[in-house]
Simulated scan of single mutants.
Amino acid sequence: MLKRAIHWGAAVITVAAVTVGCAAPEYTYVKNAEQKTYFKVPHDWHQLPTGDLDDYLTGSNPNSASSAIRQRMWWSVAYDAAAIPDPVHLTTSDVTDEPIVYARVAQLTEPQQNAVSLDMLRDMFLPVTEDAREAQAANTQLTGFELLSDEVLTPSDGTHGVRVVYNYEITGVMHTFDLTALVNNTADRLYLLFIRCSTSCYRERTEQLDTIATSFTVRSK
Results as ranks from 00 to 15, higher is better:
Arg163Cys: 02
Gln47Gly: 03
Ile100Asp: 03
His160Glu: 05
His46Gln: 07
Glu130Lys: 15
Glu204Thr: 12
Asp123Thr: 10
Pro42Thr: 11
Arg4Thr: 06
Val30Ser: 07
Thr211Ala: 15
Lys221Val: 04
Ser67Cys: 06
Leu148Asn: 08
Asp55Pro: 00
Ala10Gln: 02
Thr214Met: 07
Glu151Ile: 11
Thr50Gly: 04
Asp123Arg: 08
Asn63Ile: 07
Phe177Ser: 05
Gly21Val: 12
Ala103Trp: 08
Phe177Thr: 08
Val218Gln: 06
Met73Asn: 12
Pro127Thr: 00
Leu121Ala: 02
Tyr102Val: 03
Asp210Lys: 13
Met1Gln: 10
Gly172Ile: 09
Tyr166Glu: 13
Thr19Gln: 14
Ala17Gln: 12
Ser198Asn: 02
Thr37His: 00
Thr206Ala: 15
Asp97Trp: 00
Gln208Met: 15
Ile6His: 05
Glu34Pro: 01
Tyr27Asp: 11
Met120Thr: 02
Phe145Leu: 09
Ala135Asn: 07
Arg196Glu: 01
Asp157Gly: 05
His46Lys: 00
Arg203Gly: 13
Leu108Ser: 07
Ala213Cys: 11
Met120Gln: 14
Val18Leu: 07
Asp131Ser: 15
Thr28Ala: 13
Thr154Glu: 14
Gln47Tyr: 04
Ile100Ala: 03
His160Arg: 15
Ala81Thr: 01
Leu118Ile: 03
Leu153Asn: 12
Pro62Asn: 08
Ile195Val: 08
Asn61Pro: 06
Asp97Pro: 03
Val95Lys: 08
Tyr27Arg: 03
Thr143Pro: 07
Pro111Met: 01
Thr19Ala: 11
Gln113Asp: 02
Gln113Met: 13
Val15Ala: 14
Cys197Ala: 06
His43Lys: 14
Leu147Met: 13
Leu153Tyr: 04
Val165Thr: 13
Gly144Arg: 06
Ala10Tyr: 07
Ala138Ser: 15
Thr50Leu: 07
Val162Trp: 12
Asn63Thr: 10
Pro62Tyr: 00
Asp150Phe: 07
Thr58Asn: 14
Trp45Pro: 03
Trp45Glu: 04
Leu153Met: 01
Arg133Lys: 08
Ser64Tyr: 12
Val116Pro: 10
Val41Tyr: 10
Leu118Gly: 09
Asp80Ser: 02
Ile170Glu: 09
Thr211Asn: 14
Lys221Gln: 14
Thr140Ile: 11
Thr14His: 11
Thr129Gly: 08
Asn185Ile: 05
His46Met: 02
Tyr202Val: 05
Leu192Lys: 05
Ala187Glu: 15
Thr180Tyr: 08
Pro99Phe: 02
Glu146Met: 05
Glu146Val: 14
Asp131Arg: 15
Asp86Arg: 01
Tyr38His: 09
Ser198Gln: 12
Ala11Asp: 10
Ala137Pro: 00
His43Pro: 00
Gln107Pro: 04
Asp44Leu: 13
Arg196Ser: 09
Thr140Gly: 06
Thr50Ser: 04
Thr199Tyr: 06
Val165Tyr: 01
Met1Lys: 10
